[in-house]
């Protein structure tokens, strides 16, 4: 379990530091696989069918289906990398250190006995990194990836809290996320077709006026 937690933290750091989008998608897919294995490892002694199904469905949805969807999106839009995020990749990593500290603080502060602290820490870290990426990256694809990372964190927290978490609820959440990302993918595709870019930052400039405001001019 420690190994999975460490890999989870490392994958989040990789996301903070890499600019290539297909790498980011692969990393998120790997996270999905890790999280799928997690409940199975966690209850290795009394493994029952429900947990096995939960693990397998996580692997299929988060490790295979969603990354495939994002990849399709990426291919259709023809973007390769995140250029000029609001916070650069080096500073992002530094912020990652701070977030890691914050995650440790939260996990220790919660004082939950019987919860593996390292797993709790890494899950909180995933949530924080997801939030951070969502705020600091420009491309809509990265932002939806960040949403997935955050959801992975939430899932991790759920698993670390208790394994008897109603398994139907967990499956329901998976379905929700799937639909959410499906919609996002659709949206991205249409965005890309309409505006020929996926820069979410530029959405603020949408208007019916035919001429875009010249660069440098202050908008009222």
């Amino acid at each position: 379990m420690t190994v999975i937690s460490v890999l989870l933290i490392l994958s989040c750091l990789l996301l903070l530091g890499s600019s290539r989008l297909h790498v980011a998608i692969r990393v998120v897919a790997a996270q999905g696989l890790l999280l799928g294995v997690l409940p199975i490892v966690r209850s290795a002694e009394n493994l029952h069918v429900a947990i096995l199904i939960l693990g397998l469905s996580t692997i299929v949805s988060k490790g295979i289906l969603l990354p495939w969807l994002m990849n399709t999106c990426l291919r259709l839009s023809g973007i390769r990398r995140e250029i000029e995020p609001f916070v650069g990749f080096g500073p992002s990593l530094l912020c990652g250190t701070a977030l890691l500290g914050l995650a440790v603080w939260i996990a220790v502060r919660l004082q939950l006995p019987q919860v593996p602290l390292i797993l709790l820490t890494s899950s909180f870290f995933a949530i924080l990194v997801g939030l951070f990426l969502m705020v600091t990256r420009r491309k809509a694809i990265t932002q939806s990836l960040a949403y997935l990372v955050m959801e992975n964190g939430v899932y991790g927290v759920g698993i670390s809290m208790s394994l008897d978490f109603p398994f139907l609820v967990e499956l329901g959440i998976l379905l929700d996320v799937f639909v959410g990302v499906f919609l996002m993918g659709n949206l991205l595709f249409h965005l890309d077709r309409e505006f020929e870019h996926l820069d979410a930052d530029k959405l603020t400039e949408l208007s019916d006026l035919s001429e875009p405001a010249p660069a440098g001019e202050e908008r009222v």
Partner: peptide, 18 residues
């Protein structure tokens, strides 16, 4: 280099809370 320091930091966290 920051990445390398982070690896050590994670090890520290694992040591402290794991």
């Amino acid at each position: 280099l920051i990445g390398s320091a982070l690896l050590s930091l994670i090890a520290l966290i694992v040591r402290l809370v794991g």
